[in-house]
């Protein structure tokens, strides 16, 4: 059995041409895909963005991505000792790498600005 998993990850900012990065991560049975991605960030490439808060409890629901073509939570999907293709959700606005805009519309900064609690100013 292979001792590593290979994560093939869609990279780039919104609107950029799609590129991928490939990362080989250690594999231990029972680990989640998020475990693998967190290993990448701490050891191989910190520029990879994948949003997550709770890591274990599966309560925040922030880590939803597309794994081998299927929508799943990265924190509950199993890491497997093979090539795994990871992409951002296709039905949400893309922000960066595996991150999409999942904030409810009325909880975004844009919405707050529309309700008149603020303005955009030319900054420093």
């Amino acid at each position: 059995m292979r001792e590593t998993a290979t994560l093939i990850v869609r990279r780039g900012n919104a609107g950029d041409a799609a590129t991928t990065s490939s990362y080989e991560v250690p594999y231990t049975p029972g680990q989640s895909v998020l475990d693998g991605l967190r290993f990448v960030r701490a050891n191989l490439d910190e520029t990879l963005s994948v949003r997550h808060a709770c890591i274990n409890a599966n309560t925040c629901k922030e880590c939803m991505i597309v794994i081998d073509g299927k929508v799943e939570y990265a924190c509950t999907a199993r890491l497997e000792p093979r090539d795994m293709v990871l992409e951002p959700l296709g039905n949400k606005a893309h922000l960066r790498d595996l991150v999409t805009e999942i904030t409810p519309p009325d909880e975004r900064l844009e919405h707050a600005l529309k309700t008149g609690v603020g303005k955009v100013a030319a900054g420093a």
């Binding site: 409890a57 309560t59 925040c60 629901k61 904030t103 409810p104 707050a112």
Partner: peptide
């Protein structure tokens, strides 16, 4: 009074309370 409730993550979902 008027209130802004700000969170670095999703409102109500991302701290210890929901866990």
């Amino acid at each position: 009074v008027s209130v802004i409730l700000a969170d670095r993550s999703l409102i109500s979902r991302s701290g210890a309370t929901i866990m």
